[in-house]
């Protein structure tokens, strides 16, 4: 299985093809949202909404055989695309890998510039929540 670093490099390369065309980049991000696993309706609850995002984001995680599996959804297509990138990098990895991951693909693809500060803050909130889940599972594993 590719490492977190490998996948981040892949993503950066894909975005490089789009170059400086902001509109195409956003269209691409919106399309990526289509890759998300359908989010279970019974988990569309207030308690799974991530605080700190302008748009609504639901995120749940479960542990299977030592790996963390994430599912998420949003009410906006751009945000869905962004979550799908985070999930592509972090899904089905051990809590240790997730916690140690240096997620540098976001600045490397110039996402802050494309998205503006509001969405960038939201993205950081999503990342933190994913790491928080990993931390919870790691604590449970070590208990």
């Amino acid at each position: 299985m590719s490492t977190i670093a490998d996948i981040q490099n892949e993503i950066v390369a894909e975005f490089e093809i789009l170059g400086d065309d902001r509109e195409s980049t956003i269209f691409y991000i919106m399309e990526l949202g289509g890759n998300l696993e359908p989010y279970p309706e019974d988990l569309r609850k207030e308690e799974y909404i991530i605080q700190g995002c302008q748009s609504k984001v639901w995120l749940v995680a479960e542990e299977k055989e030592g790996k963390v599996h994430y599912r998420a959804d949003s009410n906006t297509d751009i945000t869905k695309g962004l979550i799908s990138l985070l999930i592509r990098v972090l899904d089905r990895r051990s809590p240790k890998e997730i916690l140690e991951a240096n997620l540098d693909f976001i600045p490397r693809i110039g996402m802050g510039n494309i998205l503006g500060s509001q969405r960038s803050n939201g993205l950081a909130a999503m990342m933190n929540q994913m790491k928080r889940y990993a931390l919870a599972f790691q604590t449970k594993q070590n208990a």
């Binding site: 509109e23 956003i26 269209f27 919106m30 748009s55 906006t76 751009i78 969405r119």
Partner: peptide
């Protein structure tokens, strides 16, 4: 479509 996405585009 969500208004945020339209605004960003």
């Amino acid at each position: 479509m969500h208004p945020f996405d339209v605004g960003q585009l």
